[in-house]
């Protein structure tokens, strides 16, 4: 059974009687353990697709089946529960809470779960270890470099052991070295068995994934495995 199955998925926005179609008749499956890049120019609908797959938005038509469950029928609280337990987000602009320590930022998703308080700190510390930031636990976001901030965001996305990690242009605000480091971490996480969905407009970044879904004007124009996959420094050895 596929982890994600999308059938005839549609999305339209209605604003003062003006209907804007964003996604048309999308069909694809993503299995557990995949590393898929959704690639397309801005305005192509890739972010909207990510929002639907990440339970932040609802489709207007068609079906989205997650782990065998039809998501289209879920109401707001159930969607919040899915976000809390099934997915982790990494945003282009990090979205860390200011004036809140690194550790507390990573604990944040666990606050909305039933994880006991003591266990939360342990899980957050482990997640920060895995992105190489165990020495920054009590730093504030404004004391970190861009690359470090994004690694905190990755640790936050990891901390509730989600079924899928969504990364929305995760290297967009980073210099190339930090960007590479972030891609390396994502590849390592994928190698550890995490399913990763990367949203990007850059071909080079997309080629770090195993499979690319190209989307244009709300439609999938290609869905193929990456022939010459890019490996971020250091990640290659691990994956082999």
């Amino acid at each position: 059974m596929a982890l994600i199955e999308v059938k005839n998925l549609e999305k339209e926005y209605v604003n003062e009687a003006i209907v804007t179609h964003v996604l048309y008749n999308l069909n694809f499956k993503i299995d557990k353990g995949e590393f898929v890049a959704i690639m397309g120019p801005s305005g192509s609908g890739k972010s909207t697709l990510m929002h639907i797959l990440g339970f932040l938005d609802k489709a207007s038509g068609g079906q989205f089946i997650f782990n065998g469950r039809d998501v289209s029928t879920l109401h707001d609280d159930e969607l919040a529960e899915m976000r809390s337990s099934q997915v982790g987000f990494v945003f282009q602009s990090f979205n860390l809470l200011p004036r809140t320590t690194v550790l507390e930022n990573v604990i944040l998703p666990l606050v909305y779960t039933s994880t006991p308080a003591r266990k939360r700190e342990e899980l957050a510390t482990t997640a920060l270890n895995s992105v190489g930031l165990s020495h920054r636990l009590n730093f504030l976001p404004n004391q970190l470099s861009g690359g470090e901030k994004q690694r905190v965001a990755i640790a936050r996305a990891l901390v509730n052991d989600p079924a899928v990690i969504f990364a929305d242009e995760p290297t967009g605000n980073l210099d190339s070295k930090s960007g590479l480091q972030v891609m390396q971490i994502l590849q390592e996480l994928n190698a550890d068995g995490h399913t990763i969905i990367l949203v990007t407009h850059e071909k080079y970044t997309a080629e770090h994934a195993k499979r690319i879904l190209r989307i244009k004007d709300g439609e999938i124009i290609s869905d193929e495995l990456v022939a010459n996959r890019q490996f971020a420094t250091g990640a290659k050895e691990l994956i082999k």
């Binding site: 990440g54 932040l56 707001d76 609280d77 919040a80 529960e81 976000r83 809390s84 337990s85 987000f89 979205n95 809470l97 944040l108 998703p109 909305y112 779960t113 936050r156 509730n160």
Partner: peptide, 10 residues
């Protein structure tokens, strides 16, 4: 952000 991380309206 809190909502994206799983916070319910409540």
């Amino acid at each position: 952000l809190r909502k994206a991380l799983g916070a319910k309206n409540r």
